[in-house]
Design a protein around this nucleic acid. Structure first.
Lengths: 145, 145
DNA sequence: CTGGCACATGATAATGATTGTCATGTTCTT
DNA sequence: AAGAACATGACAATCATTATCATGTGCCAG
């Protein structure tokens, strides 16, 4: 019992800490590429592959969660609690965590109704955040197309 | 001017019809690559790029809809009606269209609550279909890990 | 303190899906 | 039948992601 084979030696390294710190500073989703560029811009030396690996590891560990953008890029964000969904601004990328018991129940019910087991659901709501809504309204007048 | 610039000349071509026919035959999601391979296997001459373009067009036209797999590949399926979601078997890929007024209302409410406008939502439920559930239960006894 | 080991890193190459290019084919209009 | 407008197909280009592999780093035993 004293043997702990699941967790081995070093784990949360300097570069993984860097990634995590960075994600703590923003409240939007960031792609691996963006994260890498941002860290390099700050003068940190970190490889792109390391960012990918770090994010994968952090995701498996349940420390961050990921969302695919419509063009297939994976983006990551630090997440606080067990289960939640996101309300994402399709313009600036700002994200808000939302919860919904209604939704959980609904998905369980739908799955059961069709005889599906072990249901898991992925929900993302995209829209325009208050700021971007205002900005969009202002640009309306000068819109040619 | 009787010129109709929104809808121009040829549209639903032979190869787009091929894609559509193929999607009508299955009830799972197919990727562009799978679709292309399947059509070529049947002896049809159709280019990969054409499949991609065809699917894009069909999607914009609302004739098919797409879902991203967890590894980022876009998959497509013929869809019947305006707005719905999917209950997808994560083992065999079988998909069932589901509807939920509850969900629509919920997403509108959540968006409004946070001042977001023009909400759009993406919902997918993944689980094991009845058949795969049975099969999984049978394999349990011989599972080593 | 020191050697060794397991894992992490970083640079780069490889992969794989998707998109762009461009010359040619198709089809519709006149 | 001619011309315009779009579609096609082969191939190159792009872009995110993953694999490779030699090197680095931190932790453990002695």
């Amino acid at each position: 019992m004293s043997t702990d084979q699941t967790s081995s030696r070093p784990r949360l390294t300097r570069q993984r800490q860097l990634i995590l710190d960075r994600l703590d500073q923003v409240d939007t989703f960031l792609s691996a590429q963006q994260l890498h560029a941002a860290l390099r811009a700050e003068g940190e030396t970190i490889g792109l592959a390391t960012v990918y690996r770090g994010l994968q590891w952090l995701e498996e560990a349940g420390i961050v969660d990921s969302v695919r953008t419509t063009d297939g890029e994976a983006t990551y964000r630090r997440c606080s609690m067990a289960h939640h969904h996101h309300l994402i601004c399709r313009r600036c990328g700002r994200a808000v965590e939302v919860h919904g018991e209604v939704l959980e129940e609904w998905s369980r019910a739908i799955a059961a109704e069709h005889g599906f087991t072990q249901p898991e659901h992925f929900v993302e709501i995209f829209g325009l955040c208050p700021e971007c809504t205002t900005r969009a309204a202002q640009n309306e007048s000068s819109d040619s197309l």
